[in-house]
């Protein structure tokens, strides 16, 4: 399975994301933000970092780059897309996911290992987990507070769009402890914590993050 990993100017975690894809058994296709065409890939990962220096709003300018228009079109046709941290911000700005990410309520950058409860184990990126399972992966952000109007939050919850929720403390003041959400079809997932940093015992707090990448590979095999 060929998984594209996009590099924007200011991406930081594209190399780690590519490494996680390889460890899960996938083939990595490096993608560049300015490309107009999306090559033949089966899924795309948007990595963490500070694309365009977070100018205007985090993810705002990256979401409007040529390659993202192609990613949005393919996502509407069912291609799985995973956005991690800045990648989640890009997906919200691109309109593929509901809500928005804003400055942390305490105004501090927060960097720690974070417990998450898996609320949906039936998306393209979380089928390797069990519903209700608790996993631990790093979280690191300054603008990770998930927000939406109350009526929109009720709709997001009612439609079962919350994929992962913070457990054991909310690191950034996110509404209703929401750490990640999915599209209506379960193919596009975005989350602020970093599963790609928890794929090896040597460098991560656990290997709990690998499941995001094995999920999409298994989904392709069974499809």
């Amino acid at each position: 399975m060929r998984i594209g990993v996009v590099t924007f100017p200011g991406s930081l975690d594209d190399v780690d994301a590519a490494r996680a894809v390889r460890l899960a058994g996938g083939e990595v296709v490096p993608l560049w933000h300015a490309d107009a065409e999306l090559p033949a890939v089966d899924a795309v990962v948007l990595p963490g970092g500070f694309s365009y220096g977070d100018y205007l709003r985090a993810g705002a300018i990256a979401a409007r780059q040529p390659l993202m228009r192609a990613v949005v079109d393919r996502a509407h046709a069912g291609m799985p897309v995973l956005g991690i941290c800045n990648g989640f911000q890009v997906l919200c700005e691109a309109g593929l996911l509901p809500g928005a990410l804003t400055r942390n309520s305490h105004l501090h950058f927060r960097n720690r290992d974070q417990a998450l409860r898996v609320e949906r184990a039936d998306t393209a990126w979380t089928s390797s987990y069990a519903q209700g399972q608790t996993i631990t992966v790093p979280v690191k952000n300054g603008e990770g507070r998930y927000v939406a109007a109350d009526a929109d939050l009720d709709r997001i919850e009612g439609e079962g769009r919350v994929v992962v929720r913070y457990a054991g403390g909310n690191p950034n003041g996110s509404s209703r402890d929401i750490a990640g959400v999915t599209s209506a079809d379960g193919r596009v997932v975005g989350l602020m914590p970093h599963p790609e940093h928890a794929v090896e015992e040597l460098t991560g707090p656990s290997v709990d993050g690998l499941g995001f990448f094995t999920s999409v590979l298994q989904g392709a095999l069974s499809a």
Binding site: N104, V147, A149, D150, G173
Partner: peptide, 13 residues
């Protein structure tokens, strides 16, 4: 400006 229902921690600071 942020919508009234969205909290603004920078403004509060």
């Amino acid at each position: 400006v942020l919508k009234p229902e969205i909290s603004d921690p920078q403004g509060q600071a």
